[in-house]
Amino acid sequence: MSSILVVALNQRGQSNPQTWELLGAGRALADASKQPLLAVLIGATAQQAQELVERGADRVLWTGHPTLQNFVNELYAQIVLETAQKEKPSHILLPSNVMGRSLAGRLAVKLEAGLATDVSRLDGGHAERNHYNGNLKAAVEFSSPIRVLTLQPMAFAPALRHSGRSGKIEELSFSPASTRAEFVSFQAEEAGEIDLGAAEGIVTGGRGVGGADGFKLLREFAHTLGAALGATRAAVDSGWIPYRHQVGLTGRTVSPKLYIACGASGQIQHMAGMSGSANIVAINTDAGCPMMQQATIAVVGDLFQLIPSIITEIKKRKGAL
């Protein structure tokens, strides 16, 4: 019997919230095609496997093998391949992050499968995704029995947890093959910051932020909102903030619920990375710039005067609520 296979990837032992979105999308596909929803959970614990069942998986195959604490493409791919060869899934769902994109290429070739990345909608036989940097949508169709899909973060509703929901949980016996890639070490960066790809809200600064000091104000604003901190290429190239915050053509592509662009005029290369945001707030002195034209809410004014007032106002309301 065929199935839908969700690849649930922990990051350094922690579950990744995008897994709930994969389970939400997978459950919908499984129900529509009357197939079971299977999840393979890597680098995890039995408790985490139970949560996957409670969020809609009919069967969870998991492993907590010590070699899987950090991501090694070849080892992770071995587990998913062994599972897929046995279970013959029609769809393999992965997150659109570095791990997901690394695995997707290897899986697609080894399973002779069609591949689509950053899928934002699944509709019958089609997978919808953006190309040309968000300027066009593409409906992708497949001629292979297996499809490998990475799902764009925030595009699918996360599966809710129903405690008491039951399903099968099996621990995989995994004997790692010898690999020619070896994990050496990990260095965490900027502890306590929210990753752009997983954020429901993003506060981004552009040229108008003026310098590294301006980004201190933006960081405080992001912190007040529980949002991630983004930046335009101009701000990154000026050395005001590290590259990992860059949104746009040569940085990350994001699609949060709320994107607040501060002092960012909306250069085409920046818009390419954020035009999929559900709501855009622009704060800028130039009411005519492209970002202000595109914005859901455009606030005309000086960000250095406005942002402290907005932070105070939000804190006031939170206190009042």
Binding site: F71, A181, E182, V184, A188, E189, D195, R244
Partner: peptide, 15 residues
């Protein structure tokens, strides 16, 4: 570059 920091990986060539 990972979402949460930097991994160092040793690769045997060809790669």
């Amino acid at each position: 570059m990972m979402e949460d920091g930097i991994d160092k990986i040793k690769l045997q060539l060809p790669a």
